[in-house]
Amino acid sequence: MRIPISTFIAGLLFGGGLTVSQMVNPEKVISFLDVTGNWDPSLAFVMGGALIVTFLGYKLVLKRRGPLFDDRFRLPTRKDIDAPLLGGAALFGVGWGLAGLCPGPAIASASFAGPNAYIFVGTMIATVFIYRFIKARA
């Protein structure tokens, strides 16, 4: 039970960070992407803050032989640059810009923001499920 409890704490911290930084606010995200208009650069500070802490923290943590409650670190190993990576990121960016929502903030907002959050999260999860279902069978 130590792993699910520790990941619950991680989820709380993550969602707390998304809320305090206003990354959960689609309006704020769209203003961040609106570089040629009334640009609000705040979210660059979210990315910056998260990156600095993660970069330094990973340096310390990944020196250890493994995580506290599991046998090894599970790190992505791929290094190739392929079309799905860039095409997928491009499609994701269009969706992100259209709605001002990416997966984490969308899910976090579902606990308080009402119908628009349900519509987005419900559609996103159904899409992910169908995509993975098809891919597993292909």
């Binding site: 704490i9 911290l13 993550f14 930084s21 802490v53 993660t54 923290g57 943590v61």
Partner: peptide, 15 residues
């Protein structure tokens, strides 16, 4: 908020 997200990522990896 960004630093909290970073702490979450570090804790998830560490634990």
């Amino acid at each position: 908020g960004g630093a909290m997200i970073g702490l979450s990522a570090v804790w998830l990896m560490a634990s």
